[in-house]
């Protein structure tokens, strides 16, 4: 049912869209550029696999073109919650040119393996109340950081950098609440940490991020450094 509804939205919004009129195939140079950005700068492979590299939360991108239309891929990257309400995929702000390049790259990937099941992205956990940090954590964070915040979620072994251990007092007491807020909001890359950690700022609300921070503080049973406790943001 949800799937049908999604298709309807797509038809309205993206059915006739062309990608900057760039209908010619990506050059190998363009493809290499897109792949480099995908592997090193964007968080996509935190959840998705591309040619056996990457997380296992979302569908494999290697064969996405065999399952999804160009318009669907573009729409999903642009605003996943709109395409699949309740999706586990956050919206990543990026320049339109970058998004178009990634879409074209995915749309033109040569088939390398039999396509797995054409499953739509599924929510990681049921929707949570904005103030329920524990439920929000389970929904958005636990698959990588682990349910108990030990950096051992089921997806962690597929990541090049071990996820932060929110249960570690030693690691967390040197990080201010604002730093946690900014990382959740802006993703790992802005903190010189793993670019595979997505930015949730376009997906989660301010109260939701604060609830997550409170939950992380309960996991480490610690507070941020003294200098950061001025109560201001």
């Amino acid at each position: 049912m949800r799937h049908l509804l999604t298709a309807g939205v797509l038809a309205l919004s993206f059915g006739t869209r062309e990608l900057d009129g760039q209908n010619s195939a990506l050059t190998p140079f363009g493809a290499a550029k897109a792949e480099s950005i995908l592997r090193h700068q964007l968080p996509c492979l935190g959840c998705h696999t591309l040619q056996n590299e990457g997380g296992r939360i979302g569908p494999d991108l290697t064969s996405v073109r065999e399952r999804r239309s160009t318009a669907y891929i573009a729409a999903m990257i642009a605003d996943p919650q709109r395409v699949v309400p309740g999706s586990a995929m956050p919206r990543m702000p990026m320049p339109e040119a970058t998004r178009d390049l990634i879409v074209r790259f995915l749309d033109e990937l040569p088939a390398t393996a039999p396509a797995p099941d054409a499953a739509a992205p599924t929510p990681a956990a049921p929707a949570a109340a904005a103030t329920d940090g524990s439920a929000l954590y389970a929904r958005w964070c636990a698959s990588c950081h682990g349910a108990g915040g030990k950096g051992d979620g089921p997806n962690a072994s597929f990541l090049p950098v071990k996820p932060a251990q929110h249960a570690s007092r030693q690691a967390m007491e040197v990080r201010s609440d604002d730093a946690l807020y900014d990382t959740i909001h802006g993703g790992g890359a802005i903190m010189n940490r793993s670019a595979r950690m997505p930015a949730f700022g376009a997906t989660l609300t301010d109260p939701e991020i604060r609830a997550l921070i409170a939950h992380i503080r309960s996991l480490c049973n610690c507070r941020g450094p003294e200098w950061s406790r001025d109560g201001t943001r």
Partner: peptide
């Protein structure tokens, strides 16, 4: 050359920090 991907230029947008 185009088919090889070597077009005598690197994409600065792919550079790391």
């Amino acid at each position: 050359a185009v088919a090889s991907g070597n077009i005598g230029m690197t994409a600065l947008a792919t550079y790391g920090k």
